[in-house]
Amino acid sequence: HSLRVHINGKDFEVHNADEHVIRALEELIRRGADADELKEFLERWKG
């Protein structure tokens, strides 16, 4: 899957995101994670 996440006016393109990554991202958003947390998660995932 390809996923586009809009954080703090920046678009993050997440390519080849598997279900696990997408679910983790949705969980963060549901918990009310702020932009920094989401960005950190995506950067860690992209490795």
Score class of each variant (00 low, 15 high):
Arg23Phe: 13
Ile22Phe: 08
His1Cys: 15
Asn8Lys: 05
Glu26Ser: 10
Glu19Gln: 12
Glu27Tyr: 13
His15Met: 07
Val14Tyr: 05
Leu3Arg: 02
Asp11Tyr: 15
Ala17Thr: 08
Leu42Phe: 12
Asn16Val: 07
Leu25Thr: 01
Val5Gly: 01
Arg23Asp: 04
Gly32Asp: 04
Ala35Met: 11
Arg23Val: 06
Leu38Tyr: 03
Val5Leu: 11
Asp11Cys: 13
Ala33Gln: 03
Asn16Phe: 10
Ile22Leu: 08
Ala17Arg: 03
Glu26Asp: 06
Leu28His: 03
Lys10Leu: 04
Val5Asp: 01
Arg23Thr: 07
Leu42His: 03
Arg44Gly: 08
Ile29Asp: 01
Leu3Phe: 15
Glu37Lys: 09
Lys10Asp: 04
Ala24Ser: 07
Leu38Gln: 01
Ala35Gly: 07
Ile7Cys: 02
Ala17Glu: 08
Asn8Pro: 00
Ile7Gln: 01
His20Leu: 12
Lys39Tyr: 15
Phe12His: 02
Ile7Thr: 01
Glu27Gln: 13
His15Tyr: 10
Val5Gln: 01
Trp45Cys: 02
Glu43Ser: 14
Glu37Thr: 08
Gly32Ile: 03
His20Trp: 14
Gly32Thr: 02
Glu26Pro: 00
Arg23Tyr: 12
Ala35Ile: 15
Arg4His: 14
Ile22Glu: 03
Arg30Gln: 08
Arg44Met: 13
Gly32Trp: 03
Phe12Ala: 00
Ile22Tyr: 07
Asp34Glu: 12
Gly9Ile: 01
Glu26Val: 14
Leu28Val: 03
Arg4Glu: 12
Ser2Leu: 13
Ser2Gly: 12
Leu38Asn: 00
Arg44Thr: 13
Val5Tyr: 05
Glu37Phe: 08
Gly9Gln: 01
Ala35His: 10
Val5Thr: 02
Lys39Phe: 15
Asp11Ala: 11
Lys10Thr: 09
Asp34Ser: 12
Val21Tyr: 02
Trp45Gly: 02
Asp34Asn: 11
Lys10Phe: 05
Val14Leu: 09
Phe41Val: 06
Ile22Gly: 02
Phe12Gly: 00
Glu27Asn: 11
Gly9His: 01
Glu43Leu: 15
Arg31Phe: 09
Gly47Gln: 13
Leu38Met: 07
Asp36Ile: 07
Ala35Leu: 13
Glu19Phe: 06
Asp18Val: 04
Ala33Ile: 05
Asp36Met: 07
Glu26Ala: 11
Asp36Leu: 08
Asn8Ile: 01
Ala17Gln: 06
Ile29Tyr: 09
Asp18Ile: 03
Glu37Met: 11
Gly47Ile: 13
Leu42Gln: 02
Asp18Gln: 08
Ile7Gly: 01
Arg31Asp: 09
Glu40Asn: 11
Asp34Lys: 07
Arg44Leu: 12
Gly47Leu: 14
Val5Pro: 00
Leu28Gly: 01
Ala24Asp: 07
Asp36Gln: 09
Lys39Ile: 15
Val14Glu: 01
Leu3Ser: 04
Glu13Ile: 14
Ser2Ile: 15
Ile29Glu: 02
Asp36Ser: 10
Phe41Cys: 03
His20Asn: 12
Arg30Ile: 08
Lys39Cys: 08
Leu38Pro: 00
Asp34Pro: 07
Arg4Ile: 15
Arg30Phe: 12
Leu25Gly: 00
Arg44Ile: 08
Lys10Pro: 00
His1Gln: 14
Leu25Ala: 02
Ala33Asn: 03
Ala24Val: 08
Arg31Thr: 08
Ile29His: 03
Glu13His: 08
Arg30Thr: 08
Glu27Lys: 11
Glu40Val: 13
Asn16Glu: 05
Leu25Arg: 00
Arg23Cys: 04
Val14Ser: 01
Glu19Lys: 11
Glu27Cys: 13
Glu43Ile: 15
Gly47Met: 13
Glu37Gly: 05
Asn16Ile: 07
Ala17Met: 09
Leu28Glu: 04
Lys39Ala: 14
Arg23Ile: 07
Gly32Ser: 04
Gly32Glu: 04
His15Ala: 06
His1Asn: 14
Glu13Gly: 02
Leu38Glu: 00
His6Pro: 01
Arg4Tyr: 09
Arg44Lys: 13
Trp45His: 05
Ala24Gln: 09
Leu25Ser: 00
Arg4Lys: 15
Glu13Ser: 05
Ala35Phe: 14
Glu27Leu: 14
Ala35Gln: 06
Ala17Cys: 02
Glu40Gln: 11
Lys46Leu: 13
Ile7Phe: 06
Glu13Arg: 03
Asp36Lys: 08
Ala35Cys: 05
Lys46Asp: 07
Arg23Trp: 12
Ser2His: 15
Glu27Thr: 12
Leu28Met: 12
Gly47Asp: 09
Lys10Ala: 05
Ala17Gly: 04
His1Ile: 14
Leu25Glu: 00
Leu3Ala: 04
Gly47Ala: 12
Glu37Leu: 06
Trp45Phe: 09
Gly32Met: 05
Asp34Trp: 05
Arg23Gly: 06
Arg30Leu: 12
Lys46Val: 15
Arg31His: 08
Glu13Leu: 09
Arg30Asp: 06
Glu19Cys: 09
Val5Glu: 01
Asn16Thr: 09
Leu3Ile: 15
Ile29Arg: 02
His20Pro: 07
Ile29Cys: 04
Leu38Trp: 05
